[in-house]
Measured scan of single mutants.
Amino acid sequence: PEDLERKVRELQKNGVSPEQIEKILRRDGVDEREVQELVKKVS
């Protein structure tokens, strides 16, 4: 979803590592495939 992507970009802009971003997304209940997609987009 659009807002998730925005969140991921925000986190990355704040210097959060892709690994941390993955953890955060998983903790928020984002589905694994979605997590991978989002992280791939920003890394």
Rank of each mutant, 00 (worst) to 15 (best):
N14E: 09
Q36K: 11
K41L: 14
E37Q: 08
K41D: 04
P18T: 13
R9S: 05
S17D: 06
S43L: 15
E32W: 10
L4F: 04
V8I: 10
I21R: 00
R6K: 12
E22D: 02
L25V: 01
V35C: 03
V42A: 10
I24H: 02
Q36R: 12
S17A: 09
V8P: 00
D31L: 06
E34S: 12
R33W: 12
K40R: 11
E34F: 13
Q12S: 13
E32N: 04
D31I: 04
E22A: 14
D3R: 05
R33V: 09
P18Y: 13
Q36H: 09
E5W: 14
V39F: 10
L38H: 03
D3N: 08
I21M: 04
R6Y: 09
R9F: 09
N14Q: 14
N14R: 13
D28N: 07
R6M: 12
E32S: 06
L38W: 14
R27C: 13
K23I: 14
I21W: 02
P1G: 12
V16L: 14
E32R: 03
E5A: 10
V42C: 09
D3Q: 08
E5Q: 08
V42P: 05
K40Q: 11
S17E: 05
K23N: 12
L38S: 02
V35T: 03
K23G: 08
R33Y: 08
E22M: 15
E5P: 03
L38A: 08
R26H: 04
E34K: 14
E10G: 04
R6Q: 12
L11D: 00
N14P: 00
P18K: 13
D28P: 03
V35M: 05
V16H: 13
L4C: 03
R27G: 08
V39S: 03
R33C: 12
V30F: 14
I24E: 03
I24D: 02
K41I: 10
D28Y: 15
D28I: 14
K7Q: 06
V8E: 01
K40H: 12
P1W: 15
L11R: 00
K23M: 14
P1T: 13
R33T: 09
L4E: 01
K40C: 09
V30I: 10
Q12H: 15
R6D: 09
P18S: 09
K7W: 15
K13E: 09
V16K: 10
I24K: 01
V35I: 15
E22N: 03
E2R: 12
G15Q: 02
R27Y: 08
R33N: 11
V30T: 03
Q12P: 00
V8M: 03
K41S: 08
S17R: 05
R26D: 02
L4W: 11
E34G: 03
S17M: 04
E32G: 05
R9C: 12
G29S: 02
K23C: 14
V8H: 01
V16P: 00
Q36T: 07
G15W: 01
E22L: 14
E19M: 07
R33P: 03
N14L: 13
E32H: 04
R26S: 06
D3T: 08
E10R: 10
V35S: 03
E10S: 04
E19W: 09
Q20D: 14
K23W: 12
G15S: 02
K13I: 06
Q20A: 09
K7H: 05
K7D: 02
R26Q: 06
K13C: 12
V30A: 07
E2F: 11
K23P: 00
P18A: 12
D28A: 13
K13S: 09
L11V: 00
V35W: 08
L4K: 03
K13D: 07
V42W: 11
Q20I: 09
